[in-house]
Amino acid sequence: MAFVPLTDTTEARYAEIARKMLETGNWITPLHDYAVPFWAKPPLSTWLAAAAMGLFGETELAVRLPSLLLSLAVLWLTADLTRRHSCRDAGIAAALVAQP
């Protein structure tokens, strides 16, 4: 995550929108360019990426960290709920099947 550059155009675009949000301090309107708002996606992922860049610097790791943490949380919830409904082995299997 930290050493692979943002090569996909979509990932790089969302990272730049988050960087501009952090730079301008405008946490309400995501900006595609400095005068062009970007309304194509709900802003929660942009807010999280901008906050991570504020904490850890403008790096690829900071941009990807919120998605990684949320993905791990979903896998944990999947495993825990399946374990409660069925058994421990089923919870592990569900988390393994659900991983991207």
Score class of each variant (00 low, 15 high):
83 R>V: 03
65 L>S: 04
99 Q>T: 12
24 T>D: 00
98 A>E: 02
99 Q>M: 13
38 F>R: 01
14 Y>G: 01
24 T>Y: 01
8 D>C: 09
40 A>K: 11
48 L>I: 07
12 A>P: 04
27 W>K: 00
17 I>D: 10
31 L>D: 01
11 E>R: 11
55 L>R: 13
73 A>F: 09
98 A>K: 03
50 A>F: 10
8 D>R: 12
56 F>A: 13
47 W>H: 15
63 V>A: 06
88 R>W: 13
18 A>E: 12
17 I>K: 04
17 I>V: 15
85 H>T: 12
17 I>T: 05
22 L>E: 02
55 L>N: 06
76 W>H: 12
38 F>D: 10
99 Q>A: 09
34 Y>A: 00
56 F>P: 03
66 P>Y: 02
77 L>S: 14
48 L>G: 02
68 L>S: 01
24 T>N: 00
91 G>P: 00
14 Y>Q: 13
13 R>K: 15
12 A>M: 11
85 H>L: 12
7 T>Y: 11
77 L>W: 14
37 P>H: 04
48 L>Q: 15
3 F>D: 07
53 M>H: 09
47 W>Q: 10
30 P>M: 01
43 P>R: 15
30 P>W: 00
20 K>E: 03
44 L>W: 08
79 A>R: 14
94 A>H: 06
76 W>Q: 08
87 C>P: 00
78 T>W: 02
53 M>R: 05
51 A>G: 05
66 P>F: 03
2 A>V: 08
37 P>F: 03
90 A>R: 06
50 A>Y: 10
100 P>G: 06
65 L>G: 03
60 E>W: 04
67 S>N: 05
61 L>A: 14
8 D>L: 10
63 V>P: 00
60 E>T: 13
53 M>C: 13
46 T>N: 06
3 F>V: 06
97 V>A: 07
12 A>G: 07
46 T>G: 03
40 A>C: 05
49 A>T: 14
26 N>Y: 02
87 C>H: 10
23 E>D: 08
68 L>N: 00
1 M>R: 08
62 A>G: 05
58 E>Y: 04
9 T>W: 13
55 L>Q: 12
8 D>H: 15
91 G>K: 07
93 A>C: 11
